[in-house]
C-alpha cells in the first residue's frame, strides 16, 4: 500500500510568482518525512503540490515531475481526482464537514469512492478508521452527532479518520497539531507512529521536537529573502539533521539561531 514518491526539478508557481524552486527529493514508503523551515518558505505549497491540491488555487501551477510508482502524477493522462484519492491530506485547521455527523464525516470519502457498500461493511470501516485515529472510544456513543461539535483535537483526529478511511497510499499532514493542546498532540503523534507502518507520511511542522520525535527523514526548506523562492537546503535522516547537519543554515535554524 505505502508508496514511494520521487520528486524531481519541481518548480511551483502562484501565477507568475515562483514560490518554491527546484525541489528534488525521494519520499520513502513506510516512513515519516518531516518538512521544516521558516514561515513562508513554501512547505505547505510543496505539500499541496504532492496531491495536486495546489492547482485548485486560481493561477497556481507547477513544472517538473512527481512520480509515484513509476507514474508521473502530473502526466497529461492523469486525473487529479484519482491522485487525491490515493494521496490523502490532513489540514492545519480541523475541517470536518459541518453539516455531517461524525459517522457521515468518516464515511464521506468512502461514499465518493466506492459508491455502494453494505451498511454493515460501512459500519465496520467507520469503526476501523475511528479506531485507527484513536477516536473510537470517545465518540462511539454519539456517532450521529455533528462532527463540528467535537473538541479541536477530536475534530483533527476525525479528519485523520476521514483521510485514512479511503485507505490512501500516502498521507500528507500540514501542521496537524498546531491547533491542538499537548495531550491531543501526543495522541496524534502516537497515531502517526502507528500509521507509518502502513502509509507513507509527509508532515509539515514548526515544532522541532515533534519533527525529531516522529520523523525518519527531515527536509529543511529555506528562502534567501522575502519574495525569493523557497528551496530545499538539506534532506537527510532525522538523526543526522538534528545532530550533525551538513549545512550551516540548517544548524542555525534547528538550534534557534535564526535571523
Amino acid at each position: 500500500m505505502a508508496k514511494l514518491i520521487d520528486v524531481s526539478d519541481l518548480n511551483i508557481y502562484y501565477g507568475d510568482f515562483l514560490a518554491v524552486e527546484d525541489v528534488t527529493m525521494t519520499i520513502e514508503p513506510r516512513a515519516v518525512t518531516a518538512l521544516i523551515g521558516p514561515s513562508g518558505c513554501g512547505k505547505s505549497t510543496f505539500l499541496r503540490s504532492l496531491n495536486r491540491m495546489h492547482e485548485v488555487i486560481p493561477g497556481a501551477r507547477v513544472e517538473g515531475k512527481v512520480v509515484m510508482d513509476g507514474q508521473d502524477l502530473y502526466g497529461s493522462d492523469i486525473d487529479p481526482v484519482t491522485v487525491r484519492r490515493q494521496i490523502g491530506m490532513v489540514f492545519q485547521r480541523p475541517n470536518p464537514f459541518p453539516t455531517m455527523s461524525i459517522y457521515e464525516n468518516v464515511a464521506a470519502g468512502i461514499k465518493l469512492n466506492a459508491k455502494r457498500m453494505k451498511k454493515s461493511d460501512l459500519d465496520e470501516l467507520v469503526e476501523r478508521s475511528l479506531r485507527g485515529a484513536n477516536l473510537w472510544n470517545e465518540v462511539k456513543d454519539r456517532l450521529n452527532r455533528p462532527g463540528a461539535g467535537l473538541s479541536g483535537g477530536q475534530q483533527q483526529r476525525l479528519c485523520i479518520a476521514r483521510a485514512i478511511a479511503i485507505q490512501p497510499d500516502v498521507l500528507l499532514m500540514d501542521e496537524p497539531c498546531s491547533a491542538l493542546d499537548p495531550i491531543s498532540t501526543l495522541a496524534v503523534e502516537d497515531l502517526i507512529e502507528q500509521l507509518k507502518l502502513e502509509y507513507t507520511i509527509v508532515i509539515v511542522t514548526h515544532n522541532m521536537q515533534q519533527a525529531a520525535r516522529v520523523s525518519d527523514k527531515t527536509a529543511f526548506f529555506n528562502l534567501a529573502a522575502v519574495g525569493k523562492p523557497g528551496k530545499v537546503v538539506e534532506i537527510d535522516d532525522t538523526a543526522t539533521i538534528f545532530s550533525n547537519p551538513s549545512q550551516k543554515a540548517t544548524e542555525d535554524y534547528i538550534s534557534g539561531r535564526f535571523g
Binding site: 496531491n51 491540491m53 485548485v56 481526482v81 484519482t82 487525491r84 484519492r85 490523502g88 491530506m89 489540514f91 485547521r93 475541517n95 470536518p96 464537514f97 459541518p98 464521506a108 470519502g109 465518493l112 469512492n113 479528519c159 476521514r162 483521510a163 479511503i166
Partner: peptide
C-alpha cells in the same frame, strides 16, 4: 469556507461532488 471545499477536494471529490458535499 475554502476549508470545507478543500476538505472535499482532498478526499478526491470532483467539482460536482465538492458542491454536493461542501
Amino acid at each position: 469556507p475554502r476549508l470545507h471545499e478543500e476538505a472535499a477536494l482532498a478526499l478526491g471529490a470532483t467539482r460536482w461532488e465538492t458542491i454536493r458535499y461542501a
